[in-house]
Design a binder for these strands. Structure first.
Lengths: 215, 215
DNA sequence: AATTCTATTAAACGAACGTTTGAATGGTAG
DNA sequence: CTACCATTCAAACGTTCGTTTAATAGAATT
């Protein structure tokens, strides 16, 4: 799979192009030109452009999952440290503020299309991460959580992280150039961790509702 | 401007189309068909398609700023209530979880393009909101804040909100259907407000660095 | 050696797109 | 009535796109 076959060369050429300009703006001629293959190779190896795109997204997902695995903690790792590791890993995956590899850009592009078939693929990419986060949240909060609160807390955490990818326009506008040093991944992870640890405190002594008093 | 002129009819037809399928997938023929005008009208009124798109984005920005203005508070409004109002207004602007008017979708689409000229327009749309949020943060935190922390806190807040728009794929996947009732705007705003109020506590008794010990 | 399969190529096809043309329409002013 | 102007229209233009064809060369197989 890591070989220099023609099929792989096409995918590796298509990836950055699709990631940068999107599916409809990435022409097969550009891709084939970048891969040094004939345009007919698309039909020969992938059937059509749509399927080339699909295989490219699959390839991106797989290559991405192999890098930056979420850390495996030892038993006595403090919960706050785990949260920091999680946040910084996620930020690193998104490589906030700087050029991300095309795999990330492509997956992010897919994540925001509401009605595509590729969505399931992206969900496979995010769901395990999110489930891991939910487990982590349980460890951070003393006492049981309402399921909806677990989810909302999870969304609060990954929302803070993802914003450094989605909101680049806002970021670039609001953060002066001489302050970029304070927005490196370590410092962002530090902020989000502290902010979140405090935010979680609201739920630590929360009453868990009995089964009778449902809203 | 609110008249039923041909030009306006074209923009109002182009808006939902561009918002749903994007610039390159929205054809002038579809737009003109929806507006019941001839295709040549595009050139006649807008010059070309690119300019039609630009005017449509401008129109969306203007119509959107008029609705859902951020609330003006009285002097004695508690800071936490102001935060709740801000968050719920923002969420309402984004109309999380349900179909948003095309103006929002179009502006969101623009917000994520990193290299477009339209970006300045979107920044005009978001910058005042963000500046207002920074002022609010100052009121919520006792004592002075480092500028970078003000920004990070601001990003934490709008990150939590925007995620309910960007991350619809994750949301739809993780939130079971019978739990959607707990994800209405009021409850989301409630969660984010509480979560944020706690998170802000980390900064309330913070030491403000003297001018000498810069970074 | 003859045949078959795999891979690649130049060239063209048909469709869809943004754009443009040139005429027709209808109201208004001279 | 005539001339003028803004507006609308059907039709076509030129380009680009994804796709397909038919031919070719080499390797593998019989």
């Amino acid at each position: 799979m890591r070989e220099d076959s023609t099929k792989n060369r096409i995918i590796e050429a298509a990836g950055p192009i699709f990631a940068e300009v999107g599916y409809e703006n990435g022409t097969v001629r550009d891709i084939c030109s970048a891969a040094n293959v004939n345009v007919a190779s698309i039909k020969y190896y992938f059937g059509d452009k749509k399927n080339l795109y699909l295989e490219t997204v699959l390839y991106a997902r797989q290559s991405r999952a192999e890098r930056y695995p979420f850390p495996g903690w030892s038993e006595e790792t403090p919960a706050e440290e785990r949260l920091y590791d999680f946040v910084s890993s996620l930020l690193r995956r998104l490589t906030a503020l700087q050029g991300a590899p095309w795999q990330v850009n492509l997956l992010m592009r897919e994540l925001m299309k509401p009605n595509e078939a590729c969505r399931l693929i992206v969900q496979e990419y995010f769901q395990p991460m999110f489930r891991g986060l939910l487990v982590l949240i349980d460890q951070l909060v003393e006492g049981p959580l309402k399921e909806e609160d677990r989810l909302k807390i999870g969304f609060s955490i990954i929302g803070q992280c993802l914003h450094y990818r989605y909101g680049t326009a806002v970021m670039d506008l609001m953060v002066p150039a001489d302050m970029r040093d304070s927005f490196e991944i370590e410092q962002l992870a530090d902020h989000i961790t502290k902010f979140t640890m405090r935010g979680l405190a609201s739920f630590s002594q929360q009453e868990v509702p009995t089964q009778n008093e449902s809203e």
